[in-house]
Every structure is written in structure tokens, then in C-alpha cells.
Design a protein around this nucleic acid. Sequence first.
DNA 1: CGCAAACCTTGACCATAGTCATGGATTCGT
DNA 2: ACGAATCCATGACTATGGTCAAGGTTTGCG
Lengths: 234, 234
Amino acid sequence: MAHEHYKAIARNSLLIRSLPEQHIETLLSHANFRHYERGENVFLQDEEATAIHVVIDGWVKLFRVAPNGAEAVVSVFTRGGSFGEAVALRGTNYPVSAEAVTAAEVMHIPSSLLISLMKEDPQIGLSILASTFMHLHSLVEQLEQLKAQTGAQRVAEFLLTLCQCDCGPSEVILPYDKVLIAGRLGMKPESLSRAFARLKTAGVKIKKNHAAIEDVRRLREYTEDDPADAWSKA
Amino acid sequence: MAHEHYKAIARNSLLIRSLPEQHIETLLSHANFRHYERGENVFLQDEEATAIHVVIDGWVKLFRVAPNGAEAVVSVFTRGGSFGEAVALRGTNYPVSAEAVTAAEVMHIPSSLLISLMKEDPQIGLSILASTFMHLHSLVEQLEQLKAQTGAQRVAEFLLTLCQCDCGPSEVILPYDKVLIAGRLGMKPESLSRAFARLKTAGVKIKKNHAAIEDVRRLREYTEDDPADAWSKA
DNA sequence: CGCAAACCTTGACCATAGTCATGGATTCGT
DNA sequence: ACGAATCCATGACTATGGTCAAGGTTTGCG
């Protein structure tokens, strides 16, 4: 197979690592890999699920289109991220659509294989449950952010997830374009621009797709403030 | 046991009905029941999970408190609703807090029992996964609504979930107080009042906790409109 | 019954973010 | 290297929803 390198990446994903050791090779050897162009759909909302998806390279977004045409981005995955676990195991329909937002390489694990393996090892079900729960958790956090924070605070939160260090200055690269960042954070691109502008007062400078954070701790405090207080600091 | 009536209700819950027949009695006989006063906590965020919870009577909300003090309501359950499934099975900590918003009766299924039963029957894991996935799905819908709809449209959507018929006139009862409805829909009570006022133009009249819907179909159209269009119809 | 507390509505005002339009910058294909 | 297209920033304006304050209504308790 020409995919040994891809498999190595897959083995490093949280989903695969949580699976029982003895089944990993079986699963990987039956997985298939596919390249997606930017803008190409991986699957559509309401389609029947036939596989679990693991991103090998590039970026993939999950989103819903509301009846009025507005698009709500639910999550964005890159190398090592997996999605569709619960749906694949249960054989129901996708509640969201998936689209490659850059050229992307995605591994697909056929759900038929997964289901048959699960019958001999219930631990697989637990791995799926763990992944599903992580997604659940991330949605709960998104809800909290949407309901309790201003746009600028959500942007700050987003920047913090991008930098690993937890204090001092830091420089991060915006991983995908601003239209998508805006969607992920529940705002319009124009509002994102203004949020960036506002974050200057919290020690953040944006140039192209680089963000320079003066002091990570200060930015974290900014996200935890009451919106009114955050304003008064400006 | 004095709880036969409660168990009958539990048997009717989606979670219990999805469990394998032969384990239901075991699970129910080891479950325990507890009464909660209004405002009492069922559990707190970051506590370790020891049970799955099934609401027998009354209403229970799941919520998170943001660092800035704002509260985000994640979901609200009543008779037959269950929560904490995934967390119980995995033995991790709750990502949310749970509080009775009316006097409530809640059944608790110890996770230790669940875990040991699951070892002999992996189908139990699938039932848990199914419930977890339903919660996931409902969060995705909430995200979509928050990102793509105005307050008034979310209120309309909420009213529609309360009435079973799908066309013609309908009368529904608001199941809990407006502060909580507002929280559930991501707005302040004042905004909820105004949203109700605005829905008058869509054929909805609110009196106390009764909502009279002139035409369900018309209200559904209202939720599907672009906010600007919805406005122009007023 | 009567008072107090909780709940709800309304008004005035303002902050936040969406819309529309414009112009600058960057990227890409030829 | 040129031009087209895309992406991004900004300004002006508007709509939505949050905040603060006041007042009405309902509920529950003594």
C-alpha cells in the first residue's frame, strides 16, 4: 500500500489510539483513503452513514444549513480529528454536512467492519462513546461561549486554543481563512475584523494570518471578564 | 417497594426502552429514587459521575456557569428524560450542573451496575450511545438556532416543539417559567417578553402561561424565514 | 385578607453585531 | 508581469438584544 505514512498519522489520532490494540491493524488495513479538493463535500446532511472519518491532512468543517440559508459551522477538524463515529455505529443519518475547506486527505473506516468487530469486543463501543462524548463536550462549550460571551471574547478564546503555552507572549498562526473562523465563532467576517481590532487593547496584533499575543494570561483574563468590564478596560 | 408507579414511568423513558429486555428489571430493581426540592442540585459540574439520571416527575435543567457568572442553559428535561449516560459509563466528570427547577422526582441507576452489566451485554453500550447521540443532535440544533435565527424565531421554534399537531390552530402551555425559557433560548427575560410581543404579528397570543397559536403552519414559516423577511411581514 | 416576594412586562437607552457599500491588498492563472 | 478574483478592512447605518429602572400582576404565606 502507498498509504503507510497516512496510516502512521491515523494511528496517532485520538480515536484510533483509544481503540483496543488488537483490532487497530484490522481496521487500518480495511480503511480507505481519499483526497478531497477544497470545497468538496465529504458527506451531506441526512445522508446515511457508512463510515467513520479521520482527517489525515488539511481541514474539514462540519456545518448545517438552516432553512433560511444561513450556515452554522459546528466544528472544524484537521490532522488526527475524527467525526461521524456515533452515526456510523448506529447506522443513522448524518445530522450535519462535511466539507473540505482546504485540499484534504481523509481516511474512511467502513462502518460494516466496525459493527462486526464490535460484536466480539464491546471495548470498541466504549471508544466510540468516548469520542462522541468529546464532541458533545465541545458543543456544550460552544453553546456556553455563544450565550455568555461577546464576539471579541470568543475570538480571544479561539486564539488561546491555538497557542499551547499558558502565559507570557506568544505568536500563533490562524489555521484557516477568516470567513471560516467567523463562521465557527458564530459571527460575520466583518464582525471578526472588528473583534480583532478591539483585541488590540488586550495586547493582540493581527498581521495577515499571524496573531501576536503580548501576554497570554492577560488575554485569558479578558475572556473571563464580564462583557461590561472587558469594555471598561479598553 | 413503594416505587412501582415510578418504575412504570421509567420503563416508558426512551433510554430504558432502548435497553435489552432481559436487563431492564435488574437495572430498575437496583435503581434508587429521590425527591428534589425546587432549586436543589442533582449534581454539580466537575463532580464525578456515579449514576445515570432519569426524570420521573418535575423538571430538571442542565446548565453551565461561565467564568464571568453568566449561566448557559444546555437542556431541560421532564418525565422520561434521561441525562448523564455517557459520563456514567465512562466514569469521567460532569461537564454541566443539574438543578431541579420544580419539585422533582429523579431515578438514579448506579453506574457500577451499568458497567458490570455492559461487560456481559455490549448492546447496553449501544443504548447509551444512542441516548448520547440524541443529546449531541439536540445540541447541534441549538447551535444552529443560536447562530442562524433571531430571538423571536427561536421562541417560535420552541412553541412548535410544544405542540404536536403540524397545522391549523393550537393552544400550548408554557411548561416552566419564563426566566428558564429565556435561558434555554439564550436570551434575557426582557427579550423573551419582547419576542412574544413580536410574535403577535405571526398569530401568537400569550396569556399567562398559555400560548394560542392561530396557525401552526404560519408559525413554522416564520421560523424558516430570513430574519429580514420575517421582519418585513410584521 | 393583606402584605411581601417573585414574576412578568414595558420603556428608555446603549452596546453589539448584521447589512450594504467601498476600496485596498493579496493570490492566482495566464 | 498583468489583470481578475478573492479576501479582508473600514465606514455608515440599522436591527437586535442587553441593561437599568419602574410599575403591574400573581403567588404564597402569615
